[in-house]
C-alpha cells in the first residue's frame, strides 16, 4: 500500500500537543514537528530521545584539560626547563599554580567549540544548507506536524486532527 505524508498546520502549540498525544495513544507515529520556538513537552510525546550533546561536551572538555597539561608539561618542564623569575621548573607539580589559568581556558574552549561543532554537524546546520522546514510560516507563527502513514489509516488520523489543526496538506 502506498504511503501518505500529512502536513497538519496549527495556530498554537497547545492543540498540536493535544493532537500529538492522541495520535500517540492510538499507536500512530509522528515523524516530526516544526515550530517557531521550542515546545516544551513535545519530545516525550513524539518520542525524541534525550540528546547526548552534554556528554560529548564533557568528553571534549577533559580532552582540553589533558592537551593543555601535556603541552605545558612538555614545553615548560621537559623541553626547556628554564629558570624564569625563580619559578621552579623541575617538575610539573612544583609550578602547577601558574598552569591553572590556561588549563581552565583550554578546557572551556574545547568543551564549548567541540559541542557547538557536533551540534551543527549532527543537525546538518551548515552555511548553504537547504531550509529544513517544509512550510516557511513555521518559523513565524505556525506549528506543523508531519505524519507519515498508510493510506488506510488516513481517515482515522484526519478525525483526530480535525479538532485542532487549521490546515491539512497531503504529499
Amino acid at each position: 500500500m502506498s504511503k501518505v505524508v500529512i502536513h497538519a498546520i496549527y495556530d498554537d502549540e497547545e492543540p498540536l500537543l493535544e493532537s500529538a498525544k492522541q495520535l500517540r495513544s492510538q499507536g500512530f507515529s509522528i515523524k516530526d514537528v516544526f515550530s517557531p520556538f521550542p515546545i516544551h513537552g513535545i519530545d516525550g510525546v513524539i518520542g525524541v530521545p534525550r540528546t547526548r550533546l552534554a556528554i560529548c561536551s564533557f568528553l571534549y572538555g577533559i580532552t582540553g584539560t589533558s592537551l593543555a597539561t601535556l603541552m605545558m608539561w612538555y614545553m615548560m618542564v621537559q623541553d626547556w626547563p628554564t629558570d624564569i623569575g625563580g619559578k621552579p621548573s623541575f617538575a610539573y607539580y612544583m609550578n602547577v599554580p601558574a598552569f591553572i589559568p590556561i588549563t581552565f581556558e583550554s578546557t572551556v574552549f574545547c568543551a564549548a567549540h567541540g559541542m557547538a561543532l557536533t551540534f551543527f554537524l549532527r543537525s546538518w546546520l551548515i552555511p548553504g544548507a537547504k531550509a529544513k522546514n517544509p512550510d516557511p510560516r513555521t518559523t513565524d507563527d505556525k506549528f506543523m506536524m508531519v505524519i507519515e502513514t498508510e493510506e488506510a489509516s488516513k481517515s482515522v488520523i484526519e478525525s483526530i486532527l480535525k479538532g485542532g489543526a487549521t490546515e491539512l496538506h497531503y504529499k
Binding site: 515546545i39 540528546t51 557547538a116
Partner: peptide, 24 residues
C-alpha cells in the same frame, strides 16, 4: 539563507538547540 544554516525548527533540533544553549 546562508546565515541561518538551513534551520527549520524541527523538534529534534530544538531539543539539541536548548541543550547546547544550556551547556554553553
Amino acid at each position: 539563507g546562508i546565515l541561518s544554516f538551513g534551520w527549520g525548527g524541527s523538534a529534534r533540533h530544538w531539543s539539541r538547540f536548548e541543550e547546547v544553549s544550556l551547556v554553553l
